[in-house]
Amino acid sequence: MTSCPRCGATRAPSANYCPSCGTPTLAHKRQHRERTNADRSRRRTAVLALAITVIGPLVVGVLAYRGMEDAAEWTQDVAIFSVSIASAWFAYHLLRRDRAQDAMDAGQPERSKLAGAWVYPVAILTGLMTWSIAWLYVRYGYQAFVTTVSDDAALPPAMTIWEIAAIVVIAPIVEEVLCRGAAWDALRRLAGRRTTLLGTAAIFAILHGMNGGVSLELPHRFVGGVAFGCLRLVSGSVRPSIVAHAVHNALAVIV
């Protein structure tokens, strides 16, 4: 038995508070402080990881689209893709340190509600739906501002295999790993599922605004981000959202 330094009442060694005056014990205060510090450290790491996933691609994207205007398009793509992959890897590396602790806190890892193979048809439908919305927005909203017709306007040249692969395969993988992978994991440590869904969709939209469209690009990209995020949420995996994103981009290329 120990005594309270404030009121002198005796208390059990395992007690966190004095039963007489309610003063917390020193050990309990220390334990609480350590827990708070650990929580703060994890939050700081998560914010840093989130910032990296946004800052890297955003700055290099702006640099590629505005600073490397004369460079070949494929060099811009390679620059953005490689920095995005590096940012995602770095963010994962930062978050890995706290992963064991997260698993302990959560009790069990998030279980997939739609883990079956039938999530992929849903993903294809989602890609179709997001493309439809984007097409409607671009056709009847966005193009009202950006389309001009002139004799000198170069007609869109036929796409090369590299460009098609970059749009339909590489971009969905990189963007989804970045937004629904690294950014999702980082944000999940900071907030609940709904906030994570909306936050990653906002990041996804803003990352697409870096090629000059800024606010004009945000609405349909945000809708796409929410749809892909829903797939990530219900399936617990980034793969269905990659499929949906690829379908979306493939339709954009075909049409």
Binding site: V54, L58, G61, L63, L190, A202, I206
Partner: peptide, 16 residues
Amino acid sequence: VVWAIVLASLQTLWLG
């Protein structure tokens, strides 16, 4: 959180 991220991201875009 969402709106703090939006503001930080837009500020990053502007800085870039």
